[in-house]
Design a protein around this nucleic acid. Structure first.
Ligand SMILES: [Mn+2]
Ligand SMILES: [Mn+2]
Ligand SMILES: [Mn+2]
Ligand SMILES: [Mn+2]
Lengths: 142, 142
DNA sequence: GGCGCTATATAGCACTTGCTATACTTTCGA
DNA sequence: TCGAAAGTATAGCAAGTGCTATATAGCGCC
């Protein structure tokens, strides 16, 4: 069922909610990147993931292990990394959301490079309701 | 000199920058809350901090230890927690920024309760440039 | 003044996400 | 084909942020 978001509906407390968002932020960025690499290069290698995330290769391997544990990706030793259906769906949502946030910030007058920097963190804390509000602004009076 | 922000000027890479923002997010929320409690109750007790942050008391104690290590707060055993000058300045900046982000989201049409939830995470990733853009929107055509 | 309640500190554990160093596997060119 | 280079895995460490259980200190009241 869940084309539902990774928890739009969790903690009552705003601090707990922000912590929860942070906990999935890394997963979101990884699946988005793996999707990008698969599209660009035909496969996502650990070395390429590590390079683009600006982390060491063992760190990437460890984070990929978490993706696998959470059912978002698969991999076999010394082979590339592949998204599950769930992972691919998440990647698409995350990519769209990222683009929306960047476009929205630019529309607000933020320079593109700064919009890109800020969006990388902001995106993980934007609820569906807020995202829709951003889209409404973008679609209204071009 | 530094009424400068906790690093507006760090990593070249957007992922590294978001990680950095995350690393200071907890500090920012704690100093803001300690400032709030001091203003409201005259002092900030560990138990009150823990309750409002929705963490256990030992977790709050440990995070306060980090605040002290980083020169943002002081405390003596079995006494309350006090912000240093630097901590107080940070608290004020963080509080203003929080309010700006919430007000901006509400202006974008986000319901107040959701704006409050999202802002708690978003605020830590909003650069000075983006914050100014938000303020410009708020000050323009009321 | 001492007792008990409450607040705080401390100990010990788990998980996440970083790192370096090193071992192992695969791949590719000579 | 085989050996070096490149890619990946593993080991071991550190720091941060959670938790529960328990010890200890402070405080108010009898
Ligand atoms: Mn991101
Ligand atoms: Mn992104
Ligand atoms: Mn916050
Ligand atoms: Mn806040």
């Amino acid at each position: 069922m869940p084309d539902t978001f990774l928890d739009e509906n969790k903690p009552a407390n705003r601090f707990a909610r922000a912590r929860e968002a942070q906990a999935v932020a890394l997963l979101e960025d990884y699946v988005e990147m793996i999707g990008d690499l698969s599209a660009e290069l035909g496969e996502a290698r650990v070395a390429d993931i590590a390079e683009r995330m600006h982390v060491s290769q063992p760190t990437a391997t460890k984070s990929i292990a978490r993706l696998k544990r959470e059912g978002l990706a698969t991999s076999r030793p010394y082979r590339g990394v592949f998204l599950t259906d769930e992972g691919a769906r998440l990647a698409d949502r995350v990519r769209d959301r990222h683009r929306t946030v960047v476009a929205f910030l630019i529309r607000m007058g933020v320079p593109e490079d700064i919009a890109e920097l800020d969006a990388e963190g902001i995106e993980h804390h934007v609820s569906q309701v807020t995202l829709s509000a951003f889209e409404a602004v973008l679609n209204c009076k071009t």
